[in-house]
């Protein structure tokens, strides 16, 4: 099924995603864990948002939800006019492919394949023809400054270079949001700064960026900070 068949829920002008009274409950053995207890957030197009909170605050759960890796137990999540809450697993895969650009703390590149192939992968899953893919991938490689590394395997790269590959991979499908989970967590501070500069540059070009972090100086790059505590919103900037 294509995402075009899904029910559309119009959002207000300029709003890219809206989370309304979302809860997420996990069952762990006999116990129910309430990771999110009713959270509402609205993020506008072109915003640069940081999500902060100590561990156990529901930060990761919220990030999984925004990244369409998980769906809410109750409540609504609408991303670019599409109701994510009701989607099947394959529809979620499609939404992630088209609307989310993931940047992970541990880079999460596919091992054994080249930089080029890693960046090309989302386009393959999107069904972009080979002749179109080439241009897009090359452009993305240039954009993150890895032009001469295209043929290298991901394990031949430094951490900073790997994260650049991940960012390039996040960009190729022109996502609605770039979702970065502790993007500098595994990098030394100077490389971290380079990566954050890259993120800032993407924001300037008009990308919507959501940054999940527990470091204040990383969160400072964002224009707005959303703080979570015990599954509830503490502040949303």
């Amino acid at each position: 099924m294509s995402s075009d068949d899904l029910a559309t829920v119009p959002l207000a002008d300029g709003v890219i995603l809206s989370i309304e009274n979302v809860t997420r409950t996990y069952v762990m053995g006999d116990e129910e864990v309430h990771a999110l207890k009713g959270v509402s957030i609205t993020i506008n197009k072109g915003e640069y948002v940081a999500i902060m909170g100590p561990s156990g605050s529901g930060k990761s759960t919220l990030m999984n939800m925004i990244g369409c890796l998980d769906v809410p137990s109750t409540g609504e999540y609408i991303l670019e006019n599409q109701a994510v809450s009701a989607m099947s697993e394959d529809q979620l895969a499609e939404i992630r492919n088209e609307k989310i650009g993931f940047v992970f703390q541990t880079f999460n590149l596919v091992p054994r394949v080249t930089v080029y192939q890693n960046i090309e992968l989302p386009l393959i899953y999107k069904g972009v023809a080979k002749r179109h893919r080439r241009k897009i991938v090359e452009k993305a490689i240039e954009a993150v400054g890895l032009g001469e590394r295209a043929k290298h395997k991901s394990n031949e790269l430094s951490g900073g270079q790997r994260q650049r590959v991940a960012i390039a991979r996040a960009l190729v499908c022109e996502p609605a949001i770039i979702l970065a989970d502790e993007p500098t967590g595994n990098l030394d501070s100077s490389t971290g700064k380079e990566i954050m500069a890259l993120m800032d540059g993407l924001h300037k070009k008009g990308h919507t960026i959501i940054l999940v972090t527990h470091e204040d100086d990383i969160a400072e790059h964002a224009n707005r900070t959303i703080r979570l505590r015990d599954g509830l919103l503490e502040s949303s900037g």
Binding site: D90, E94, N97, F102, N108, P122, Y125
Partner: peptide
């Protein structure tokens, strides 16, 4: 397993 997770995150469906 991890690779499968990565592939799914960037849009691989179950069929792929």
């Amino acid at each position: 397993t991890k690779e499968i997770g990565i592939r799914k995150a960037i849009g691989a469906k179950r069929r792929s």
